[in-house]
């Protein structure tokens, strides 16, 4: 097991560097000059040259790439000249705000997705099943940013139940418990929008996995021994189905971040989405590369964790392809 883990970790290293090289090259090959954004308008040529030299942007690209990879090997993901701090610290500053939306949305979506998915599986092709599947597919087809706008128009503007933007009331300056309530109030609409896009994959996978497991031999055997259907479902099928569900959540992390960015944009929620967009506008290369790389690493880690869990359960994986 330890050997397997070590092997997988070692395999992940070139993957991380591969991802780093690809994103770095893509970003730096693009037209656009970070100095323009850094300097503001109306700089003269000499001014620009001076700025470029300062930030090492006058060196050949491949040299810059080697410098970058060298620093990366030491765990340095770059320095944001615009924010005047390390890129990682900027990103970590914004991460909680994004997680504040994603985690509760994911929790709610999991509860809904798993329970409805299980019920639907238990009554395959019933009215409930069909309704749930259709709703899911619809949830999948509606663009999340559009849905967010509709929610905003209805519940923030028309009914005036919720604020239209931000994470807190800027004027009130609440403290303590009131502040928490205030943030919660601001969270409702964005989370509602996110839940609708998080539920479908979870529900679908749950349903599929449970159906599959219900078919498995041992469950048939269990039923043959006279256990009730309900009991079989709860005792055997669902726990077995949990793994693939965990896999989805893990593997959909990129998708979930994407949804979050769009929702953040509509509700002017200060999080990673805003950070990325403003970094792009400013050609803040360090932030962009660091953020893409951190996403890649997250995906790699999620894969790894899932693999390890699987290998614990199913030794074949360890020796398999």
């Amino acid at each position: 097991m330890v050997r397997y883990t070590v092997r997988r970790l070692l395999q992940a290293v070139p993957l991380v560097f591969g991802a780093a090289v690809v994103t770095w090259i893509l970003i730096h090959a693009a037209p656009g000059d970070p100095i323009v954004a850094l300097a503001g308008e109306d700089g003269d040529a000499g001014y620009y040259a001076m700025m470029r030299e300062r930030f090492g942007l006058d060196r050949p690209l491949h040299e810059q790439l080697f410098v970058y990879l060298g620093r990366l090997a030491q765990g340095d993901l770059g320095f944001s000249y615009r924010q005047n701090r390390s890129a990682v610290s900027v990103i970590l500053d914004q991460l909680p705000a994004t997680l504040l939306l994603m985690v509760p949305a994911l929790a709610v979506a999991s509860v809904i997705g798993i329970s409805v998915g299980t019920l639907a599986a238990a009554r395959k092709n019933s009215a409930l099943d069909n309704t749930a599947r259709t709703a899911t597919l619809l949830g999948h087809a509606v663009p999340v940013f559009w849905l967010s706008q509709v929610l905003l128009l209805l519940f923030a503007l028309r009914f005036d139940w919720f604020p239209v933007q931000g994470r807190s009331d800027a004027r009130a300056g609440y403290e303590g418990f009131r502040a928490l309530l205030d943030v919660g109030h601001h969270m409702v609409l964005p989370i509602a929008a996110l839940v609708t896009v998080y539920v479908p994959p979870i529900m679908r996978v749950t349903r599929a996995a449970v159906i599959e497991n219900l078919d498995e031999m041992y469950i048939r055997a269990a039923r043959a021994r006279g256990q009730s259907r309900r009991r079989v479902l709860i005792r055997h099928a669902l726990p077995n189905a949990m793994l693939p569900i965990v896999t989805v959540i893990g593997s959909q992390i990129g998708f979930m971040f994407a949804g979050s960015v769009l929702v953040e944009t509509v509700f002017a929620w200060p999080g990673l989405g805003r950070l990325l967009l403003s970094a792009i506008l400013a050609r803040d290369f360090a932030i962009i590369t660091a953020m893409l790389l951190m996403l890649s690493v997250t995906i790699i880690l999620m894969n790894l964790i899932t693999d390890l869990v699987y290998s614990l359960l199913d030794p074949r994986v360890r020796h398999g392809t």
Partner: peptide, 15 residues
């Protein structure tokens, strides 16, 4: 492992 949406966003925004 490349984050698809973000990569697309970055490339389209930059290029």
């Amino acid at each position: 492992v490349l984050p698809r949406f973000f990569l697309a966003l970055t490339v389209v925004a930059l290029f």
